[in-house]
């Protein structure tokens, strides 16, 4: 048992390493991501600057905090790119899901470590350049305090897992749906708009932010960013991190259930 587990880790590490090497080979994707994220980052920063003309503080937030918010959010959205949906859609369409399932490690384990490998190479190739570009042209995104920075890290890791598990649960739909692309688009836009990625929750009407606070989306972007800029007091933030952990658990259970259900029903055509 113990031995089997050790072999699995080696296999996972191999998937992880291969993915990093593969990402390093495709240079254009890297520059493309930076260009795209810079457009979004600068447009958002100037949008806030224009809105804040004539105001010092709105909803307890200063314009400098909004700039920090924008840069850190841009860095996070690169960090949160997942391929699990595309991967599942393609393997189901082409039938390669069968060979993936033959491998001696769990199907979604392969996809997770591929995504993790991609994320790792993005940190060096994209997240750091965005940090430097943002710092030079917009302003250095300083965290509220060292303690908040320490709290930010576990919160981002949980956010990464929530984001990935949500994508993985969503991707199981591909085993039954014919064309997933429009749905993937809907999901992408819902997350971008309702998670605080571009516009923080506190600007939304109260009824809407109350609803959104119950859903998992805000625990992907909003909570880590709230922590980074020190929007709330420690007690409230820790309480929110509790809810974040709870969502992580719920999504994990859902993921385990869905994964078991769909892999049982895989039917590959052809011989």
């Amino acid at each position: 048992m113990c031995n089997g587990l050790a072999v699995n880790w080696r296999a996972f590490f191999y998937v992880y390493k291969t993915r990093i090497q593969k990402t390093l080979a495709y240079r254009f994707d890297v520059y493309g991501n930076i260009i795209w994220q810079c457009i979004v980052m600068f447009a958002t920063a100037y949008f806030w600057k224009a809105l804040y003309t004539g105001y010092d503080t709105v909803k307890g937030v200063q314009v400098e905090d909004m700039m920090t918010y924008t840069i850190v959010s841009s860095m996070m959205s690169l960090f949160f790119i997942t391929f699990v949906e595309q991967r599942v859609i393609q393997s189901v369409e082409k039938g390669t899901v069968a060979t993936d399932m033959l491998k001696p490690i769990p199907l979604f384990g392969i996809y997770f470590f591929e995504d993790l490998g991609y994320t790792t190479s993005l940190i060096v190739q994209n997240v750091i350049p965005i940090f430097i570009i943002g710092s030079i042209f917009i302003g250095v995104p300083v965290p509220h305090s060292t303690f908040m920075l320490l709290l930010f890290i576990p919160s981002v890791i949980m956010a990464y897992m929530i984001n990935w598990l949500f994508a993985a649960c969503f991707s199981t739909w591909a085993f039954t749906a014919i064309n997933m692309n429009p749905m993937v688009q809907v999901k992408k836009h819902l997350i971008r708009l309702l998670s605080g990625c571009i516009i923080p929750m506190w600007f939304f009407p109260e009824w809407l932010s109350d609803i959104l606070n119950v859903l998992p989306f805000v625990y992907i972007y909003q909570l880590p960013l709230d922590i980074y800029i020190g929007k709330y007091e420690m007690g409230i933030l820790l309480q929110k991190m509790g809810i974040q952990a709870l969502w992580l658990l719920v999504l994990w259970c859902l993921f385990v259930y869905l994964q078991k259900r769909v892999t049982k029903h895989v039917l590959v055509q052809g011989g």
Binding site: P182, Q185, H189, L190
Partner: peptide
């Protein structure tokens, strides 16, 4: 599918 996804994107 697109009839659902594109309007949601722009209206939201």
């Amino acid at each position: 599918g697109w009839l659902l996804s594109n309007p949601i994107q722009f209206i939201l």
